[in-house]
């Protein structure tokens, strides 16, 4: 089953004619993703890797019946690209773009209230249901189809590290997704955990957080109240100095809030299996999940 995407998902790429757009379109096609069209205003009629380019999302949707979109457009235009996809009533929008102004995302987030579109990201690696569909920039080869583990993370390469360790332990994945490193994002931890809880194929979840905000604390409380599947948690940034933005726009400890220590404490308190050392994450999952699944 997996969550949010499967082999039937029909994907558009917004920003397909750019350097990143071309490269990742070809990578996703190689993985087997059903990319049905691309969008770049003014470049309608061109073809990229055999994929037809349209001038607008609404035109692309009419012609292709796409139900998901991957956004790889530069930051100044990314917020509008999200709104265009929402307006076309696409089910799932995955925004890879890093560096969108927060004020733009505040408007997008509030403007999407009541719309049925799900936004993943921005500033994220995307989402993959191994063996079925990849909408994002993650390396497909490290994933192992068939489950039983779901992975949700705020990071990119750190997620690849986690997935790689799971695969090495013989633990396959149902769906892996990054919800993004920005302070304002679409889908949050709880949305993903809830979907994993409802997905019969997902038997266990790995949740990867980092410093900044309180999403991990909220998620930990939610898990204790609503989940019966085992969760292994990891938090990056124990050694991060306060007041400094650690690469991701949202990764900052401010006014003593958002520390890794507080997040780990919330996880422990709510029955999440905390991984202290990244090098042991795969092994820990093997132990915990073999026992409980």
């Amino acid at each position: 089953m997996a969550i949010f995407i499967n082999k039937d998902t029909k994907v558009l790429v917004q920003g397909i004619t750019g350097k990143e757009g071309r490269f990742h379109t070809s990578q996703c096609l190689d993985y087997g993703t059903n990319i049905v069209g691309g969008v770049t205003p003014g470049k309608g009629g061109q073809e990229i890797d055999g994929v037809l380019v349209f001038n607008s999302v609404s035109e692309a949707c009419r012609e292709t019946k796409a139900n998901a979109s991957m956004i790889v457009v530069p930051p100044p235009f990314a917020a509008e690209a999200i709104l265009e996809a929402v307006d076309a009533e696409i089910d799932l929008v995955v925004c890879i773009t890093e560096g969108i102004p927060v004020m733009d995302m505040l408007r997008v987030k509030n403007g999407m209230a009541g719309c049925h579109t799900r936004l993943i990201g921005p500033n994220c690696p995307g989402i993959i249901t191994p063996g079925a569909c990849k909408i994002g920039i993650m390396p497909g080869s490290i994933h192992m189809p068939g489950g039983p583990v779901g992975v949700v993370s705020r990071s990119g390469t750190l997620t690849y590290e986690v997935v790689h360790q799971l695969t090495e332990q013989g633990l396959g994945q149902t769906t892996c997704l990054g919800i993004g490193g920005d302070p304002i994002n679409g889908t949050n931890f709880i949305d993903c955990l809830s979907a994993f809880q409802d997905d019969p194929e997902t038997k266990a979840v790995v949740m990867v957080g980092e410093i900044g905000g309180s999403a991990e604390e909220d998620a930990a409380a939610w898990i204790a109240a609503n989940m019966n599947k085992p969760v292994v948690g990891f938090i990056a940034g124990l050694t991060a100095p306060p007041g400094r933005r650690m690469g991701h726009a949202g990764a900052i400890v401010s006014g003593g809030k958002g520390t890794a220590a507080a997040k780990l404490a919330a996880m422990r308190k709510n029955g999440i299996h905390v991984c202290e050392n990244l090098g042991n994450l795969g092994k820990l999952c093997k132990e915990v999940f073999t026992e409980q699944v």
């Binding site: 993370s153 705020r154 990071s155 990119g156 390469t157 750190l158 997620t159 590290e161 490193g181 990867v208 980092e210 410093i211 990891f234 990056a236 940034g237 124990l238 050694t239 991060a240 650690m246 690469g247 991701h248 990764a251 890794a260 202290e276 050392n277 990244l278 090098g279």
Partner: peptide, 14 residues
């Protein structure tokens, strides 16, 4: 990657 960079700092400390 920022997340892996933070986790790497933590690993060095550990």
């Amino acid at each position: 990657g920022a997340g892996l960079a933070m986790a790497t700092m933590d690993l060095i400390k550990q």
